[in-house]
Write a protein that binds this DNA or RNA. Structure first.
Lengths: 138, 138
DNA sequence: AATTGACTTAGACAATGTCTATTGTAGGAT
DNA sequence: ATCCTACAATAGACATTGTCTAAGTCAATT
């Protein structure tokens, strides 16, 4: 199923029950869990998994480029398994729900040299904020 | 000097040495300090100022719309006194230096309805990442 | 100058994240 | 199939950032 696990094995990752469970918890679209949420879900499948292992595994997945860290929230970091298709985020200001979005335009090109302060600019992150339908109805 | 202090007084803010010092520490362009950095600088001028007061004062300034919270860093929140001219941020991936930038384009218009998931979108934050001249030289 | 309610303080507490010493185990070697 | 060993997992201490509370202090009004 998960070709993520295949890719990781191919890179010499030692496969353990803990790592498999963390990778499985992250499967799906529009998934943006905090480390503790990942831990809570992992514990359901593997009760003895520790917090430290979840943090370590998430850190490794980020280093390997298989998962992105997202800082839309001002509290905990969130982990986004959608690392292979570039995208940005749409966040509900009330409930914190996060959607992956693919805006048009090219914000990198919109930053003139005069506004670059000599930096070599390589990346842009765009975060849209608004209110989701559920919160708007309430 | 600081018309910020004038505005605050006009809004019924009780003026205390602590609040004056916090407001003074935030003066300047491209200032993006964490709460603890603000505290460290405030202590130089007013040794007995407490951490709680710095947090409280920063929170009040944010509520009043005089200071923005910035989450470019994944660790602590940063406070940006440049609240009256809309802008975005350019961050050095190595040393964390932050510059205020004013890109062209209109990212809000670049998000098609089909990518809005029914949200009422009201705001966009753009964070450019790169390497600053100092770090590039090193 | 007296009053009063808002402000400040110290320190406990909470949430998130990191590190270490110890124990366990995946996967190759035999 | 069993053994080895380096890598991984664990529990829990520790670190950082932020919040809260109870008690004392003081700015602005009277």
């Amino acid at each position: 199923m998960s070709d993520l696990l295949e890719r990781l094995r191919g890179r010499g990752w030692r496969m353990t029950a803990q790592r498999r469970v963390v990778a499985e918890v992250l499967e799906g679209d529009h998934v943006h869990l905090t480390a503790d949420e990942v831990h809570a879900r992992a514990v359901v499948r593997l009760p003895e998994i520790s917090r430290a292992t979840v943090y370590n595994t998430l850190g490794e997945l980020v280093s390997l480029g298989e998962v992105l860290e997202v800082a839309t929230d001002k509290r905990a970091k969130r982990y986004d398994p959608n690392a292979h298709r570039p995208h940005h985020h749409l966040v509900c200001a009330r409930c914190g729900a996060i959607k992956d979005v693919h805006p048009g335009g090219n914000p990198l090109a919109d930053l003139p040299d005069s506004e670059r302060f000599g930096f070599t600019v390589s990346d842009v992150e765009v975060t849209y904020r608004g209110v989701c339908p559920t919160c708007a109805a309430a």
